[in-house]
Design a protein around this nucleic acid. Structure first.
Lengths: 201, 201
DNA sequence: TAGTAAACCTAACACTGTTCGGAATTATAA
DNA sequence: TTATAATTCCGAACAGTGTTAGGTTTACTA
């Protein structure tokens, strides 16, 4: 790769990093092209050499967020029973949301950013967060931990699990953002209750 | 009530209706003070006689949304077994989100709008959507349909039910907004599966 | 009918994302 | 090394935003 394109990619990444930083520090509304440019010693107009619009920058930030979310889930220890592993997956999903609330909200405000860069089909790449979840459930099925019911196969089980952890994560970063009591313990029970439902046919 | 204050309230409501209309037709980003004023034959500055800021208008729209959501849930037939009633509650929650996606998303982007106008404690008024859900679960408990487990009482059951329906609703208006297949049937199974989990101790 | 308060608008301010034209920098070719 | 070309970058401007100050019109009251 030529020095030119390498420098180009480095600047692109600097823009994305600064944007992520602003979103983390001051929220998504505070992200303006001029402040973003200031942080990396550019002018606002200069950014348009690297991104076509502000929306493109936000979209790229969202895509990075989805990768980071997947990274959270890949860190989970797999050397445990399938149901315990799935519990870890769910907790990782929620933990990412709690540790990056604005980023998490942004990711799901731009649905078109959910997939891979050059792929309009949803979650088709292998290491998407949804695919990791799906593989965990598939493992539980093949190990006989989760019995498949008629009309409630892998896809339906995956959908059910996703809605549950996503509901927890979403509520906790929006409506329950300031909730004073400890919800982690309740989350545990909710997830375990769900998994128990899957395990008993 | 004097004609003056009556006219004042009518204008206030006209502003909120127009704002809701714009959000429904063109999305929340298209809501500008000038277009909003144009729709009801005012100038942008004139609106500030009725609301302190654009955010106040959005907040009021969100509060109306929460009331409408509660109305959806109050329409559900109560003359059925407790578990069937809760199923109806859940479906009503999701149906509101699907029929008012932008409004629904906005409501949960402004967490401070979740409660009553003069009440910073969450969901304290009786006919909030969450309270309706909670009462449905309470009925199931008192009728012996849902057994209370240790450390998993009414509040925890309510939280669990809320996260589930909210997860379904949220995913379907964001990440799965354009999903081609029919998810209503899957939602049925997911909700029923959840309720079955509650019914079996 | 005179005086007062409410309602409303015009004009402006500071900000936003974006574009245009040219200037500075860097790479390529002679 | 020098001339040419391409890339990179910026200042200035444009149309739009929410908001405010000041003044004018309207409506109510005494």
């Amino acid at each position: 790769m030529k020095p030119r394109t390498r420098r180009y990619h480095r600047t692109r990444q600097a823009i994305l990093d600064a944007a992520t930083e602003i979103i983390h520090e001051e929220g998504p509304d505070a992200l303006s092209m001029r402040e973003l440019a200031d942080r990396i010693d550019y002018s606002a107009a200069g950014l348009y050499e690297y991104f076509g619009s502000k929306e493109e920058i936000i979209l790229a930030v969202c895509q990075e967020g989805h990768q980071r979310l997947a990274a959270y889930m890949l860190e989970v220890d797999r050397e445990v029973p399938a149901n315990d592993y799935l519990y870890g997956i769910g907790k990782a999903y929620v933990r990412f949301a709690l540790e990056n609330p604005d980023h998490f909200l942004l990711m799901f405000s731009y649905p078109e950013a959910a997939g891979a860069p050059e792929n309009d089909e949803m979650h088709q790449e292998n290491d998407s967060s949804y695919n990791i979840l799906l593989q965990g459930i598939g493992r539980g099925i093949s190990e006989g931990v989760f019995p498949e019911r008629p009309g409630f196969g892998l896809d339906e089980l995956g959908y059910a699990a996703w809605t549950m952890v996503h509901g927890i994560a979403m509520l906790r970063v929006t409506a329950l953002r300031e909730y004073p009591l400890d919800l982690d313990a309740v989350d545990d029970q909710v997830i375990h209750n769900f998994l128990r439902g899957l395990m008993t046919a």
